[in-house]
Amino acid sequence: MALIILRNIRKVYKTGNLEVAALINLTLNIEQGEFVAIIGQSGSGKTTLLDILGCLSHPTSGEYWLDGDNVHLLPDSQLTTIRNKKIGFIFQTFHLLPRKTALENVQLPMMYARASRAIQHDRASELLTMVGLKDRLYHYNNQLSGGQQQRVAIARALANRPALLLADEPTGNLDSQSGNDILTVFEQLHQQGQTIIIITHDPLIAQRAERCITLLDGKIMSDEMAHPSSATKG
């Protein structure tokens, strides 16, 4: 069974009397270990898809299965647990908490998972070491560069060993060098078997993934495997 199964997903937003369909009968499977880019222009529905994939909101209709869980039937409280245990979020604006060290930021998902303090500390420092921030454990956000902050965010996303890493324009606020470094980290994670979905409007970034899904007006326009040759171009 695929890690992610979307069946006839519809999402309709109501603004007053006006109904806007952001996603129209979207059907999609993503296997365990895939590195997928979802690409589309603004208004194509990619943010809505991110919210649904990330269990941040329910689809208006349709079915969503994540790692065997019947997400579309689960109440809010259980979605929280799924987000905590199975999904790692990476955002364009990093979303690190102010007045917290890199270590504390990475510990946060584990704190909500009620892990012991010792485990939180060990796992967080291990992850930060992995993303190359071994000597930045006790630095605050304002003492870190954008690229470093995004690495902290990646470490935080990985804290509870999620089934899915969900990145929303992860390089959008970074210069090309740092952005490239972040994508390299994603590629390494992919090689270790991590399922990754990157949502972006940038075709160049999408090329780094092994599969590229293009959205247009709430529907999948194309779904193709990237050429291995272009994957290394950057």
């Binding site: 409280s77 929280t80 987000r83 979020f89 102010p98 946060l108 909500y112 998972a113 935080r156 509870n160």
Partner: peptide, 16 residues
């Protein structure tokens, strides 16, 4: 608000 959103995204329950 954004901090609350982030906390909820990474697993904070409403009662947290």
């Amino acid at each position: 608000t954004r901090e609350i959103g982030l906390r909820m995204a990474i697993g904070a329950r409403r009662q947290d």
